[in-house]
Design a protein around this nucleic acid. Structure first.
Length: 484
DNA sequence: GGTTGAACTTAGTATATCGCAA
DNA sequence: TTGCGATATACTAAGTTCAACC
């Protein structure tokens, strides 16, 4: 497990190594010859792993296909569950295999061994009288078989890394159960549309409330609405150190008077209301680094307040609402009668805008730099060609010969006689202008690529954009749904 | 009224697959 | 046909919410 991770940056992190070695030594036992991590050479195992990977890569398409079909055949019987008489797809029917825990950020438990899950760890939830799924390991049995029809999970086990956490087997996202709850989510966010003006008026008033708690609630709601922050629950020590709105520390937030704000986990400074800036400066006063910005606030308090404003309103609803309405707005404003590609481009840009609002990030891809320099090369080449054309143009203007190409062949003289001057300069000029727009387009593409190297579009599309907005736009503008 | 914990949603990453241009 | 980049999917960690409990 460790050797396979040799080329990741986990393998060089002290916490990761320490946690890994502690757990490994437990397995090795006190008297084992292996005592020091530094003396272990994992290279042979790593090289074996690389060879196996290469073997897999070398397989022909048919071999891969056969393998896939064989796997599918074996899994078929685990892929479905009958719920209220309807066959539904199961999301995850495999337990998490053993491995080394990979937490996000500087997680204190990274590298710990995630042990194998046994049938005796697993609780099954099925209908009363339904046949109990056969335990796949002979001689072992399930921890428990329950018949709870008030929950949607099919099975669960305790997370071996964080004992108090559970891992569940649920139905797939395409199941009617998940679809139904998705629909309810989007209906709720549509309902917010009818309340949003009142809510915004309300918190704007409270920016200057004498009551500190009220003022903190107002500013927190504003940040959630305006910057699409997530709620920010308290977490135990021993978990990843990340934060949302309610857990903001004074050092996460810098005010730039009179109306700008810098959040350390977001790239740019953002423009905010001056009164919000003043309020935040006030919340800062007298606090040391590491202190909570909203000391009078937690998610329970905040959600209670939101629930008063609109039944069922929570912090997350603002994100869904703002994401979906942004998509709708951009699609309405910017879609023009154009080619299919142009329409899809509008959709993409709207999607990207939403991803930026929701701060959906990803790592820069390994090949990003290489891709960029390839684009740069292409642009340079085109620019070189452009310079040549310009020289040609001036020569033609002066009635001179164009000379030869590098390979010695004479350049096609576009204007052998002065009489054709206008026509030939036109042709060169036209070439120059198409080249110009080509370069321009590439420069724009390059900029977009660079700007969005850390933006992930998938999450907002699946979790925050009401599919009905996309569907109706597709219908209106004759774009096939699967292209959006 | 605050705390805890169960259940469920959201998020990011590794990997597989797709689709298009060279 | 191939190889690359874009896109989809699988996986699992991290987060939210709500209700039970004390």
């Amino acid at each position: 497990m460790f050797a396979v991770m040799k080329d990741t940056n986990y393998a060089v992190k002290q916490t990761f190594i320490e946690n890994f070695f502690t757990d490994w030594r437990k397995i090795l036992g006190k008297n084992h010859i292996i005592k020091k991590f530094e003396l272990c050479d994992f290279t042979p195992i790593y090289e074996w792993h690389l060879r196996e990977k290469e073997k897999k890569k070398q397989m022909t398409t048919e071999e891969k296909k056969a393998l896939r079909e064989e796997k599918l055949k074996q899994e078929e019987k685990y892929m479905w569950a009958v719920v209220d008489g309807v066959k539904e797809k199961v999301g995850n029917f495999r337990v998490e295999p053993p491995g080394l825990f990979r937490g996000c950020g500087e997680h204190p438990k990274m590298g710990k061994l995630k042990r194998r899950i046994q049938p005796s760890d697993i609780t099954i939830n099925i209908g009363k009288g339904a046949p109990v799924p056969e335990c796949p390991i002979p001689g072992e049995c399930w921890k428990e078989v329950k018949h709870d029809n008030t929950v949607t999970w099919l099975a669960f086990w305790n997370d071996p890394i964080s004992k108090k956490d559970f891992k569940y087997a649920f139905l797939a996202a395409s199941s009617s159960l998940k679809g139904q709850s998705d629909k309810e989510k989007y209906e709720k966010s549509r309902k917010l549309k009818d309340h949003i003006q009142t809510i915004r008026d309300n918190y704007t008033k409270d920016f200057i409330s004498k009551d500190v708690t009220k003022r903190q609630i107002a500013v927190a709601t504003y940040l959630i609405d305006k910057l699409a922050l997530r709620a920010g629950n308290e977490k135990d020590n021993g978990e990843a150190d990340t934060g949302g709105c309610c857990t903001l520390k004074v050092d996460n937030v810098t005010c730039i008077s009179p109306n700008k704000l810098q959040l350390d986990f977001m790239g740019n400074t953002v423009e905010i209301e001056e009164l919000v800036c003043k309020a935040i400066e006030c919340f800062h006063a007298g606090k040391k680094a590491g202190a909570a910005l909203f000391d009078k606030l937690d998610t329970t308090t905040l959600d209670a307040h939101l629930n008063d404003l609109m039944p069922g309103l929570t912090a997350e609803v603002f994100r869904t609402y703002n994401a979906s309405i942004t998509l709708d707005g951009i699609l309405h404003e910017e879609t023009e009668d154009g080619t299919l590609l142009e329409k899809i481009d509008v959709y993409q840009r709207a999607n990207k805008e939403v991803a930026i609002i929701c701060n959906h990030q990803c790592c820069v891809s390994k090949s990003h730099d290489a891709q960029m320099s390839r684009v740069n090369e292409k642009i340079d080449k085109l620019k070189g060609r452009m310079d040549e054309l310009k020289v040609d143009l001036s020569k033609v203007m002066e009635g001179r010969s164009l000379g030869n190409y590098k390979d010695g062949k004479p350049k096609r003289n576009l204007a052998p006689e002065i009489g054709h001057l206008t026509k030939s300069t036109c042709r060169i000029e036209k070439k120059i202008s198409t080249l110009e727009s080509k370069i321009e387009k590439m420069e724009i593409d390059k900029k977009i690529k660079e700007d969005l190297k850390t933006a992930a579009l998938g999450t907002s599309k699946i979790k925050y954009l009401d599919p009905r907005i996309t569907l109706s736009w597709c219908k209106r503008h004759e774009v096939p749904f699967e292209k959006s």
